[in-house]
Protein backbone atom coordinates (compact mmCIF):
# COMPACT_ATOMS: atom_id res chain seq x y z
CA UNK A 1 0.00 0.00 0.00
CA UNK A 2 1.47 3.31 -1.09
CA UNK A 3 -0.39 5.68 1.19
CA UNK A 4 -1.16 4.78 4.78
CA UNK A 5 -2.20 6.45 8.03
CA UNK A 6 0.20 9.47 7.83
CA UNK A 7 -1.59 10.60 4.65
CA UNK A 8 -4.97 10.11 6.33
CA UNK A 9 -3.83 12.28 9.25
CA UNK A 10 -2.61 14.99 6.87
CA UNK A 11 -5.91 15.05 4.98
CA UNK A 12 -7.75 15.20 8.32
CA UNK A 13 -5.76 17.96 10.03
CA UNK A 14 -5.33 20.09 6.90
CA UNK A 15 -9.07 19.94 6.26
CA UNK A 16 -9.85 20.71 9.89
CA UNK A 17 -7.48 23.70 9.91
CA UNK A 18 -9.08 25.08 6.74
CA UNK A 19 -12.59 24.36 8.00
CA UNK A 20 -12.00 26.05 11.36
CA UNK A 21 -10.73 29.24 9.73
CA UNK A 22 -13.51 29.16 7.14
CA UNK A 23 -16.19 28.88 9.84
CA UNK A 24 -14.50 31.42 12.12
CA UNK A 25 -14.10 34.01 9.36
CA UNK A 26 -17.73 33.64 8.26
CA UNK A 27 -19.13 33.86 11.79
CA UNK A 28 -17.07 36.98 12.50
CA UNK A 29 -17.87 38.74 9.21
CA UNK A 30 -21.55 37.79 8.91
CA UNK A 31 -22.30 38.79 12.50
CA UNK A 32 -20.80 42.23 11.83
CA UNK A 33 -17.30 41.72 13.28
CA UNK A 34 -18.71 40.69 16.66
CA UNK A 35 -16.41 37.69 17.11
CA UNK A 36 -12.88 38.76 16.13
CA UNK A 37 -11.47 36.15 18.52
CA UNK A 38 -12.69 33.25 16.39
CA UNK A 39 -10.36 33.71 13.37
CA UNK A 40 -7.48 34.13 15.82
CA UNK A 41 -8.32 30.82 17.53
CA UNK A 42 -8.69 29.15 14.13
CA UNK A 43 -5.26 30.33 12.97
CA UNK A 44 -3.58 29.68 16.30
CA UNK A 45 -4.72 26.05 16.10
CA UNK A 46 -4.65 25.80 12.31
CA UNK A 47 -1.01 26.67 11.76
CA UNK A 48 0.32 23.88 14.02
CA UNK A 49 -2.15 21.46 12.43
CA UNK A 50 -1.00 22.40 8.93
CA UNK A 51 2.63 22.09 9.98
CA UNK A 52 1.92 18.68 11.53
CA UNK A 53 0.20 17.56 8.32
CA UNK A 54 3.11 18.78 6.19
CA UNK A 55 5.59 17.03 8.46
CA UNK A 56 3.70 13.75 8.08
CA UNK A 57 3.69 14.19 4.30
CA UNK A 58 7.45 14.57 4.35
CA UNK A 59 7.87 11.58 6.68
CA UNK A 60 5.82 9.49 4.26
CA UNK A 61 8.06 10.32 1.29
CA UNK A 62 10.43 7.68 -0.02
CA UNK A 63 13.21 10.28 -0.12
CA UNK A 64 12.53 12.72 2.72
CA UNK A 65 15.63 14.84 2.15
CA UNK A 66 14.40 15.68 -1.33
CA UNK A 67 11.16 17.27 -0.06
CA UNK A 68 12.47 20.66 -1.22
CA UNK A 69 12.10 19.47 -4.82
CA UNK A 70 8.37 20.16 -4.32
CA UNK A 71 9.05 23.88 -4.15
CA UNK A 72 11.17 24.12 -7.27
CA UNK A 73 8.12 23.70 -9.52
CA UNK A 74 4.56 24.99 -9.56
CA UNK A 75 2.45 22.40 -11.32
CA UNK A 76 -1.29 23.28 -11.25
CA UNK A 77 -2.12 19.96 -12.95
CA UNK A 78 -0.75 18.03 -9.98
CA UNK A 79 -2.92 18.18 -6.86
CA UNK A 80 0.14 17.12 -4.86
CA UNK A 81 2.10 20.14 -6.12
CA UNK A 82 -0.85 22.48 -5.53
CA UNK A 83 -1.38 21.00 -2.06
CA UNK A 84 2.27 21.48 -1.07
CA UNK A 85 2.16 25.13 -2.09
CA UNK A 86 -1.20 25.71 -0.39
CA UNK A 87 0.05 24.16 2.87
CA UNK A 88 3.23 26.24 2.75
CA UNK A 89 1.61 29.58 1.93
CA UNK A 90 -1.26 29.01 4.36
CA UNK A 91 1.18 28.29 7.21
CA UNK A 92 3.29 31.36 6.34
CA UNK A 93 0.29 33.70 6.11
CA UNK A 94 -1.08 32.21 9.33
CA UNK A 95 2.17 32.88 11.17
CA UNK A 96 2.25 36.48 9.92
CA UNK A 97 -1.37 37.02 10.92
CA UNK A 98 -0.81 35.59 14.41
CA UNK A 99 2.27 37.80 14.87
CA UNK A 100 0.36 40.91 13.77
CA UNK A 101 -2.65 40.16 15.98
CA UNK A 102 -0.33 39.59 18.89
CA UNK A 103 1.57 42.82 18.21
CA UNK A 104 -1.73 44.69 18.39
CA UNK A 105 -2.27 43.38 21.93
CA UNK A 106 0.37 45.82 23.12
CA UNK A 107 -0.86 49.37 23.75
CA UNK A 108 0.64 51.89 21.29
CA UNK A 109 3.52 53.65 22.93
CA UNK A 110 3.55 51.18 25.77
CA UNK A 111 7.04 50.87 27.12
CA UNK A 112 7.94 47.42 28.33
CA UNK A 113 11.54 46.58 28.60
CA UNK A 114 11.25 43.15 27.16
CA UNK A 115 12.43 41.75 23.91
CA UNK A 116 8.89 40.71 23.05
CA UNK A 117 7.48 44.20 23.42
CA UNK A 118 10.31 45.55 21.32
CA UNK A 119 9.55 43.00 18.64
CA UNK A 120 5.83 43.80 18.83
CA UNK A 121 6.49 47.50 18.34
CA UNK A 122 8.58 46.74 15.28
CA UNK A 123 5.95 44.67 13.51
CA UNK A 124 2.93 46.62 14.77
CA UNK A 125 2.96 49.22 11.94
CA UNK A 126 2.26 46.38 9.50
CA UNK A 127 -0.95 45.40 11.34
CA UNK A 128 -3.37 47.06 8.85
CA UNK A 129 -2.52 44.37 6.26
CA UNK A 130 -4.39 41.83 8.43
CA UNK A 131 -7.59 42.83 6.61
CA UNK A 132 -6.21 41.79 3.23
CA UNK A 133 -4.43 38.74 4.63
CA UNK A 134 -7.63 37.47 6.26
CA UNK A 135 -9.35 37.37 2.85
CA UNK A 136 -6.37 35.65 1.23
CA UNK A 137 -6.40 33.16 4.09
CA UNK A 138 -10.10 32.50 3.45
CA UNK A 139 -9.37 31.69 -0.19
CA UNK A 140 -6.46 29.46 0.83
CA UNK A 141 -8.62 27.75 3.48
CA UNK A 142 -11.15 26.82 0.79
CA UNK A 143 -8.37 25.53 -1.47
CA UNK A 144 -6.81 23.67 1.46
CA UNK A 145 -10.07 21.86 2.20
CA UNK A 146 -10.64 21.10 -1.49
CA UNK A 147 -7.09 19.83 -2.04
CA UNK A 148 -7.63 17.00 0.44
CA UNK A 149 -10.37 15.59 -1.78
CA UNK A 150 -8.90 16.49 -5.17
CA UNK A 151 -5.61 14.74 -4.27
CA UNK A 152 -7.37 11.41 -4.02
CA UNK A 153 -9.89 12.07 -6.83
CA UNK A 154 -7.30 12.88 -9.50
CA UNK A 155 -6.03 9.27 -9.64
CA UNK A 156 -7.10 5.99 -11.15
CA UNK A 157 -8.28 4.29 -7.96
CA UNK A 158 -12.00 3.48 -8.48
CA UNK A 159 -13.13 4.39 -4.95
CA UNK A 160 -11.58 7.84 -5.23
CA UNK A 161 -11.96 8.72 -8.88
CA UNK A 162 -15.33 7.27 -9.96
CA UNK A 163 -17.39 10.32 -8.99
CA UNK A 164 -16.74 14.00 -8.36
CA UNK A 165 -18.21 13.64 -4.86
CA UNK A 166 -15.05 12.93 -2.87
CA UNK A 167 -13.90 16.60 -2.79
CA UNK A 168 -17.50 17.53 -1.89
CA UNK A 169 -17.50 15.02 0.97
CA UNK A 170 -14.09 16.06 2.27
CA UNK A 171 -14.95 19.77 2.19
CA UNK A 172 -18.20 19.14 4.06
CA UNK A 173 -16.29 17.07 6.61
CA UNK A 174 -13.54 19.71 6.86
CA UNK A 175 -16.08 22.41 7.75
CA UNK A 176 -17.88 20.02 10.11
CA UNK A 177 -14.69 19.09 11.99
CA UNK A 178 -13.37 22.66 11.85
CA UNK A 179 -16.55 24.06 13.41
CA UNK A 180 -16.46 21.29 16.02
CA UNK A 181 -12.86 22.20 16.84
CA UNK A 182 -13.83 25.87 17.40
CA UNK A 183 -16.72 24.88 19.63
CA UNK A 184 -14.57 22.44 21.61
CA UNK A 185 -11.95 25.12 22.24
CA UNK A 186 -14.57 27.68 23.28
CA UNK A 187 -16.28 25.26 25.65
CA UNK A 188 -13.10 24.09 27.35
CA UNK A 189 -11.94 27.59 28.24
CA UNK A 190 -8.90 27.39 25.99
CA UNK A 191 -10.58 30.09 23.93
CA UNK A 192 -10.47 32.46 26.90
CA UNK A 193 -6.77 31.82 27.38
CA UNK A 194 -6.17 32.63 23.73
CA UNK A 195 -8.26 35.79 24.12
CA UNK A 196 -5.92 36.93 26.89
CA UNK A 197 -2.88 36.10 24.75
CA UNK A 198 -4.25 38.36 22.01
CA UNK A 199 -4.85 41.22 24.49
CA UNK A 200 -8.49 40.53 25.39
CA UNK A 201 -9.97 40.24 28.85
CA UNK A 202 -10.62 36.52 28.63
CA UNK A 203 -14.37 36.89 28.95
CA UNK A 204 -16.43 33.84 28.07
CA UNK A 205 -18.25 33.87 24.75
CA UNK A 206 -22.02 34.45 25.14
CA UNK A 207 -23.85 31.15 25.32
CA UNK A 208 -26.24 32.15 22.49
CA UNK A 209 -23.26 32.48 20.18
CA UNK A 210 -21.93 29.08 21.20
CA UNK A 211 -25.37 27.56 20.67
CA UNK A 212 -25.55 29.20 17.25
CA UNK A 213 -22.15 27.71 16.37
CA UNK A 214 -23.49 24.35 17.55
CA UNK A 215 -26.51 24.74 15.28
CA UNK A 216 -24.33 25.65 12.31
CA UNK A 217 -22.21 22.58 13.03
CA UNK A 218 -25.30 20.39 13.11
CA UNK A 219 -26.53 21.68 9.74
CA UNK A 220 -23.10 21.08 8.19
CA UNK A 221 -23.19 17.59 9.72
CA UNK A 222 -26.53 16.84 8.08
CA UNK A 223 -25.11 18.03 4.74
CA UNK A 224 -22.09 15.75 5.24
CA UNK A 225 -24.38 12.80 5.98
CA UNK A 226 -26.35 13.42 2.79
CA UNK A 227 -23.14 13.75 0.75
CA UNK A 228 -21.75 10.55 2.32
CA UNK A 229 -24.86 8.62 1.27
CA UNK A 230 -24.65 10.12 -2.23
CA UNK A 231 -20.91 9.32 -2.46
CA UNK A 232 -21.20 5.69 -1.36
CA UNK A 233 -24.35 5.15 -3.43
CA UNK A 234 -22.92 7.02 -6.41
CA UNK A 235 -19.69 5.02 -6.55
CA UNK A 236 -21.61 1.76 -6.06
CA UNK A 237 -24.26 2.43 -8.71
CA UNK A 238 -22.65 4.74 -11.27
CA UNK A 239 -19.04 3.60 -11.14
CA UNK A 240 -17.54 0.57 -12.84
CA UNK A 241 -17.96 -2.95 -11.37
CA UNK A 242 -14.48 -2.48 -9.86
CA UNK A 243 -15.68 0.70 -8.19
CA UNK A 244 -18.73 -1.08 -6.83
CA UNK A 245 -16.54 -3.76 -5.30
CA UNK A 246 -14.22 -1.08 -3.92
CA UNK A 247 -17.19 0.39 -2.04
CA UNK A 248 -17.88 -2.97 -0.47
CA UNK A 249 -14.44 -2.91 1.21
CA UNK A 250 -15.92 -0.03 3.21
CA UNK A 251 -19.49 -1.18 3.66
CA UNK A 252 -19.23 -4.95 4.17
CA UNK A 253 -15.52 -5.74 3.85
CA UNK A 254 -12.49 -5.38 6.12
CA UNK A 255 -13.15 -1.69 6.84
CA UNK A 256 -16.87 -2.06 7.52
CA UNK A 257 -16.58 -1.80 11.32
CA UNK A 258 -14.57 1.41 11.08
CA UNK A 259 -17.00 2.77 8.49
CA UNK A 260 -20.29 2.03 10.25
CA UNK A 261 -19.20 2.41 13.87
CA UNK A 262 -16.56 5.11 13.38
CA UNK A 263 -17.70 7.26 10.48
CA UNK A 264 -21.48 6.86 10.51
CA UNK A 265 -22.42 6.21 14.14
CA UNK A 266 -19.66 7.87 16.17
CA UNK A 267 -18.75 10.62 13.72
CA UNK A 268 -22.21 11.62 12.51
CA UNK A 269 -25.31 10.07 14.12
CA UNK A 270 -24.37 10.33 17.81
CA UNK A 271 -23.05 13.93 17.69
CA UNK A 272 -25.98 15.02 15.53
CA UNK A 273 -28.38 13.32 17.95
CA UNK A 274 -26.81 15.08 20.94
CA UNK A 275 -26.88 18.40 19.13
CA UNK A 276 -30.49 18.14 18.03
CA UNK A 277 -31.53 16.95 21.50
CA UNK A 278 -30.12 20.07 23.13
CA UNK A 279 -31.63 22.28 20.41
CA UNK A 280 -35.04 20.70 20.99
CA UNK A 281 -34.74 21.20 24.75
CA UNK A 282 -34.56 24.96 24.01
CA UNK A 283 -32.01 25.64 26.69
CA UNK A 284 -28.31 26.23 26.76
CA UNK A 285 -26.44 23.10 25.66
CA UNK A 286 -24.95 21.08 28.50
CA UNK A 287 -21.17 21.39 28.47
CA UNK A 288 -20.64 17.62 28.70
CA UNK A 289 -22.90 17.02 25.73
CA UNK A 290 -21.08 19.60 23.60
CA UNK A 291 -17.66 18.26 24.58
CA UNK A 292 -18.77 14.72 23.73
CA UNK A 293 -20.35 15.62 20.41
CA UNK A 294 -17.48 17.83 19.21
CA UNK A 295 -14.84 15.26 20.20
CA UNK A 296 -16.75 12.54 18.38
CA UNK A 297 -16.99 14.73 15.27
CA UNK A 298 -13.20 15.18 15.28
CA UNK A 299 -12.50 11.46 15.72
CA UNK A 300 -15.12 10.59 13.10
CA UNK A 301 -13.42 12.97 10.67
CA UNK A 302 -10.14 11.10 11.07
CA UNK A 303 -11.75 7.69 10.65
CA UNK A 304 -13.47 8.89 7.46
CA UNK A 305 -10.11 9.90 5.94
CA UNK A 306 -8.51 6.63 7.09
CA UNK A 307 -11.28 4.42 5.68
CA UNK A 308 -11.26 6.23 2.31
CA UNK A 309 -7.45 6.31 2.02
CA UNK A 310 -7.02 2.62 2.89
CA UNK A 311 -10.17 1.42 1.10
CA UNK A 312 -9.14 3.08 -2.15
CA UNK A 313 -5.98 1.02 -2.32
CA UNK A 314 -7.50 -2.35 -1.45
CA UNK A 315 -8.85 -3.00 -4.97
Amino acid sequence: MTWEWPIAIDLWVAGMAGGAYFAAFLIDRISGRKHPLLPKIAMFLGVPLVLLGSLLLVVDLGEQLRAWHLFTRFRPGSAMSMGSWILLVYALIGIVMIALWWSKSFEPGEVRLTVLAGLASVIRPAAPVIGVLSWIALLLAVLLMSYTGVLLSATNQPLWASTFLLPVLFVASAIFTGTALLLLVLKTGLGRLLDILFGGKGEPMPSETMDAIGKAMAIVGVVQLVVLVAYVGGVALLGTPTAASAVTTMTVGPLSFLFWAGVVLMGLLIPLGLQFASMKAKREAIVGSVLTSTSLVLIGGFILRLVVVLGGQMI
Binding site: I30, M145, G149, A172, K215, I219
Partner: peptide, 17 residues
Protein backbone atom coordinates in the same frame (compact mmCIF):
# COMPACT_ATOMS: atom_id res chain seq x y z
CA UNK B 1 -13.08 18.20 -8.79
CA UNK B 2 -11.64 21.53 -7.59
CA UNK B 3 -14.96 23.24 -8.36
CA UNK B 4 -16.84 20.51 -6.47
CA UNK B 5 -14.87 21.37 -3.34
CA UNK B 6 -15.11 25.13 -3.79
CA UNK B 7 -18.86 25.13 -4.55
CA UNK B 8 -19.51 22.93 -1.50
CA UNK B 9 -17.72 25.47 0.66
CA UNK B 10 -19.83 28.23 -0.89
CA UNK B 11 -23.11 26.40 -0.27
CA UNK B 12 -22.19 25.53 3.30
CA UNK B 13 -21.13 29.12 3.89
CA UNK B 14 -24.36 30.46 2.53
CA UNK B 15 -26.76 28.07 4.22
CA UNK B 16 -25.89 27.50 7.90
CA UNK B 17 -23.49 30.31 8.69
Amino acid sequence: QWLGGIITAGVLAAVPF
